[in-house]
Design a protein around this nucleic acid. Structure first.
Lengths: 90, 90
DNA sequence: CCCAGAATTAGATGTTCATCTAAATATCTG
DNA sequence: CAGATATTTAGATGAACATCTAATTCTGGG
């Protein structure tokens, strides 16, 4: 929980999620949307994996990343829970 | 936007919001829920004010803090927007 | 007017974290 | 197998940030 918020605190990671909403992609494809190095991207992907927001699968020479929809939805529920005020129904 | 996420990345600040959901409180009352110093609390409240998530009003010797409901709701909308997948309707 | 209590500000410190370069690992192709 | 390309890991660096102590500001009551 605490971790989820830390993960989303970084703009680049949020953008990675945005980008993966479009379609599953290899690291190289994702990298085209950013200016930082592959090492940095790898680091961010690792963090995203640790919260299970994304999953990865090796496809031969490449590694393909995709969103983990179910965790996404759990997260929305968490947010709503936190932000919802007492007695209020959104 | 970026700021909102940074603000929420800190556990103490999220707890402050939780606490203020209950009712409006003075700094001293809020402080009872935490172990860190008043200076630190003041710092967190300042950050929360900058994102307009809370508002403050001096009441004589005290300063009363309360949630800013409208910003809260904007925030929920932002989150849903980010997490919503293409073509998906929650 | 001065004191006490409430809150904020200033300045310092240690930690966390995003980023980089360089090196390592994995896989494919000739 | 050797070289090329893709990705990850290791280690270092600098910036951002949570926290603290001390000092300051603000307000109400004697």
């Amino acid at each position: 929980m605490d971790l989820i918020f830390k993960v989303l605190a970084d703009k680049s990671r949020r953008k990675i999620l945005e980008v993966l909403k479009e379609k599953d992609m290899t690291v190289g494809e994702i990298a085209k949307h950013f200016t930082f190095t592959g090492a940095t991207l790898s680091h961010h992907l690792d963090i995203l994996k640790k919260t299970r927001l994304v999953v990865s699968e090796r496809k031969g020479q490449y590694v393909k990343y995709s969103l983990n929809t179910s965790v996404f939805e759990e997260m929305i529920a968490l947010f709503l829970n936190i932000f919802q005020r007492k007695g209020e129904n959104l």
